[in-house]
């Protein structure tokens, strides 16, 4: 029973990783692809770790550390890359509904 739950977590986590790969290839511009990247980094990894914890039933502290470190560092990388992307004009303006940063972007 517990193993079944662990397998479910692992498969859903792997599916999220695959959907991130599909989104990376399909999405039109840089910022859209960033959204795909955060998926396996947050929920995908959490699910894999949950599956791991359910199977091992030990080393829970190390897994909690992995989860906390990942949750703390992933947004930093995402923000830095996203900001660099916006500033170097890697956004498809025609796909944006509205851009409320455009008027502010010329500021130093």
């Amino acid at each position: 029973m517990i193993d079944a739950l662990a397998y479910f977590c692992l498969i859903v986590g792997a599916l999220l990783s695959l959907s991130a790969g599909v989104a990376l290839v399909r999405f039109p511009d840089l910022l859209s692809r960033m959204h795909a990247a955060t998926k396996p980094q947050a929920l995908g990894l959490l699910l894999i770790l949950a599956g791991c914890a359910l199977r091992l039933r030990d080393h829970l502290g190390v897994m909690a550390l992995v989860a906390v470190f990942q949750m703390a560092t992933a947004p930093v990388a995402a923000h830095m890359v996203g900001r660099a992307g916006y500033r170097s004009g890697r956004v498809r303006q025609d796909l944006l509904i509205t851009d409320e940063l455009a008027s502010e972007a010329d500021r130093p």
Binding site: L31, H35, T38, A42, A74, P75, H79, R83, L101, E104
Partner: peptide, 10 residues
């Protein structure tokens, strides 16, 4: 940022 679908640009 952690939730997919929203990303902080600036």
């Amino acid at each position: 940022s952690l939730v997919p679908g929203s990303l902080i640009v600036e």
